[in-house]
C-alpha cells in the first residue's frame, strides 16, 4: 500500500432486517482507498459491492431497514459514529456518489443548472449568481459542449452520456476528496463509456480525487484502476494491485470470473470455462468457505470452516482461501 489511506473500512457489516429475518449483504468487509487512488470493486450481482458503497455514505434507512457494525474511518472520523446531521455534511461535500442510472437520480422538473446550484448552495454559503456561474464551470469541466445552454435544459433533453456527465458535475460541485462511482457506465454504449472513463481518470489526475469504482466489468477495472477488490457473497475474497491480480489471480472465484469473460484475443473455438452453479441467495449462505460449493479446489476443510482474508507473504495481495498458497505455487509452476 503506497498511497496514504483516505478511507479505511474495517470489518464492516451491514444488516438488513427483512421479513425472512436478518441478512447481511455486507459481511465483514475490510478495504482501503488511498489518496488519489482509483480502486475498483468487482463482483457479480448480489456480491455486496453496491451495498458496501452505499454503506460508506450510510444511505440505507437506519430507522427501519438497516444497521451497521464495524468501522468506516475517513480521515480522523469514524463515519458510523457520526450523527445524521454530521453525516449530511459529509455526503456530497467530502464524499460524492454517482449511480448507474442518471435519469432516475436527476429531478425531471428542474433544469440541470438549478440542480447543480442547489448542491452548491446546500454545502457552501455562496450567492445564486455566483453559484450559477460555478455550475456552468462544472459542466464545462466535465466536457459538456455549450454548457451555458445546457444549464438551462432539463434532464430529458440530454442523452445518457450527457446525463452521466451532469451527475459527475453535481458530484464534483463541492470538490469531494472521494468519488464513489456505482456502475457509472453500465447503462452506456461502449463509445460513450470510453468517454466517461476517460473523464473520471482525467479528474482523478487533475484534481487528485480518489475514486471507488464499482463495476462488474473486468475490462473497465483493468483500464482505469490501480487496485482492485473482488467480492463474493458479501465478503472480500481477494484484493491487490490490478497488475498482480490480473497477471495471477489466486482466489478460485477470481480465476473463474476472469476466465468466463469472452476476450477479444481469446480462442473462439473453445468453450468458455464457466464456473458451475450460481450465486446463492443471502439467506442460504453455505457454511465454511462461501464459494466452496462451486469451487474446483474445495475439500472438507473448505466446506466446514471459513478462511480469513490473509496477506500473501511478500505481496500486496490478500486472499480468502485455504488453498491460496498452493494455487500460487501451482500457477507459478505452470
Amino acid at each position: 500500500m503506497t498511497a496514504e489511506p483516505l478511507l479505511q473500512i474495517r470489518e464492516l457489516k451491514t444488516y438488513f432486517h427483512t421479513e425472512r429475518g436478518r441478512v447481511s449483504p455486507v459481511d465483514g468487509v475490510s478495504l482501503e482507498v488511498g489518496k488519489g487512488e482509483i480502486v475498483g470493486i468487482v463482483g457479480e450481482s448480489g456480491c455486496g459491492k453496491s451495498a458496501t458503497a452505499q454503506s460508506v455514505l450510510r444511505l440505507f434507512d437506519e430507522k427501519r431497514l438497516a444497521s451497521y457494525e464495524g468501522e468506516i474511518r475517513y480521515g480522523e472520523r469514524d463515519l458510523l459514529r457520526l450523527t445524521p446531521k454530521q453525516m449530511r455534511s459529509v455526503r456530497g461535500n467530502e464524499i460524492s456518489m454517482i449511480f448507474q442510472d442518471p435519469l432516475s437520480s436527476l429531478n425531471p422538473v428542474h433544469t440541470i443548472g438549478d440542480q447543480i446550484v442547489e448542491t452548491l448552495r446546500l454545502h457552501q454559503s455562496i450567492g445564486r449568481r455566483e453559484a450559477a456561474k460555478k455550475a456552468v464551470e462544472l459542466l464545462r469541466l466535465t466536457g459538456i459542449p455549450a454548457p451555458e445552454r445546457r444549464a438551462r435544459e432539463y434532464p430529458h433533453q440530454l442523452s445518457g452520456g450527457m446525463r452521466q456527465r451532469v451527475m459527475i458535475a453535481i458530484a464534483l460541485a463541492c470538490q469531494p476528496q472521494l468519488l464513489i462511482a456505482d456502475e457509472p457506465t453500465t447503462a452506456l454504449d461502449v463509445t460513450i463509456q470510453a468517454q466517461i472513463l476517460e473523464l473520471i481518470q482525467d479528474l482523478n489526475r487533475r484534481l487528485g480525487m480518489s475514486v471507488m469504482l464499482i463495476t462488474h466489468d473486468l475490462g473497465v477495472v483493468a483500464e482505469t484502476c490501480s487496485r482492485v477488490v473482488v467480492m463474493y457473497l458479501g465478503q472480500v475474497v481477494e484484493s491487490g494491485s490490478v497488475r498482480d491480480l490480473f497477471r495471477k489471480p489466486l482466489h478460485p472465484y477470481t480465476i473463474g470470473l476472469m476466465r468466463s469473460v469472452p476476450r477479444l484475443d481469446g480462442d473462439r473455438q473453445r468453450e468458455l470455462p464457466a464456473v458451475p452453479g450460481s450465486v446463492p441467495p443471502l439467506h442460504q449462505i453455505p457454511s465454511g468457505c462461501r464459494f466452496a460449493p462451486r469451487c474446483p479446489y474445495a475439500d472438507d476443510k473448505c466446506r466446514s470452516s471459513q478462511p480469513e482474508l490473509a496477506a500473501l507473504p511478500g505481496t500486496d495481495t490478500q486472499v480468502r482461501c485455504w488453498h491460496a498458497g498452493r494455487i500460487a505455487g501451482w500457477e507459478a509452476a505452470q
Partner: peptide
C-alpha cells in the same frame, strides 16, 4: 478500440475516443 480489455499489461492501446453522441 472502445472495448475495455481485461489485461492491464496490454500495451495501452490507442483508444479512439469519439466526440459527441449518436
Amino acid at each position: 478500440s472502445a472495448v475495455p480489455v481485461p489485461n492491464p499489461e496490454a500495451a495501452k492501446r490507442q483508444r479512439i475516443v469519439l466526440e459527441g453522441d449518436l
